[in-house]
Computed example of a mutant assay.
Amino acid sequence: MSRMEGGCACGKVRFSAEVASPDAYLCHCRMCQRSSGNVSLALLGIEQAKVEWKQAPDWYDSSPIARRPFCSSCGTSLGFQFREGSAHMDLTVAAFDDADYFKPTHHFGAESMHEAWLDTRELPQTRSEEYQPLQERWTRAGARPPA
Rank of each mutant, 00 (worst) to 15 (best):
F102G: 02
E115C: 08
L91H: 07
I65N: 06
S73R: 08
A87C: 02
P69E: 08
D119G: 03
D58T: 10
E115G: 08
Q55V: 14
P104G: 03
C74Q: 10
S62I: 03
E130V: 07
G85L: 06
P64E: 01
V93K: 04
D90V: 11
T105S: 15
A110N: 07
S72N: 11
R83D: 00
H107C: 03
C71Q: 02
P57Q: 00
G75P: 02
R127K: 15
A116Q: 12
D98N: 15
I65S: 10
P69A: 11
G79R: 07
K54E: 14
A56D: 08
G109N: 00
L118H: 04
C74T: 02
T120R: 15
C71L: 05
D98K: 13
R67P: 00
K54T: 14
E115T: 15
M113S: 06
R127Q: 13
F96V: 06
D119V: 09
A87Y: 02
W59Q: 05
D119E: 12
G85C: 09
T76G: 11
D90E: 13
Y101W: 13
D58A: 15
Y101G: 03
T126R: 10
D61F: 09
F70P: 14
D119T: 09
F102R: 02
Y60H: 09
P124C: 15
D58L: 04
E130A: 14
S72G: 11
S112L: 01
G109M: 06
D98F: 09
S73A: 10
T105G: 08
R83F: 00
G85T: 07
S62Y: 05
D61G: 11
R127N: 12
S63N: 10
P64Y: 13
C74P: 12
W53G: 04
P64C: 13
A99Q: 14
T105N: 05
P57R: 03
T126F: 12
G75H: 08
P104I: 04
A95L: 01
A56S: 10
S112Y: 15
L91N: 02
Y101S: 03
G85D: 06
L91C: 05
D90K: 11
Q55P: 01
Q81W: 05
D100H: 12
E130F: 09
S73Y: 10
G75I: 05
E115P: 01
A116Y: 13
W59I: 06
F102Y: 08
F70L: 12
T126A: 09
A116T: 04
E129K: 14
A99T: 06
A116H: 13
Y60V: 01
A56E: 14
D100S: 15
E130D: 15
Y101V: 02
A110V: 13
D100Q: 09
S128H: 10
R127H: 14
D98S: 11
W53S: 09
V51A: 03
E115A: 15
D100V: 13
T92D: 01
W53I: 02
A66E: 02
E122Y: 09
R67I: 00
L78I: 09
T126D: 01
W59E: 03
T76L: 04
D100W: 00
S112I: 00
G109I: 12
S62H: 06
I65C: 00
Q125A: 12
T120Q: 07
E111K: 12
A87D: 11
Q125M: 04
H106G: 00
A66Q: 01
A99V: 02
E52F: 08
L123G: 05
L118G: 01
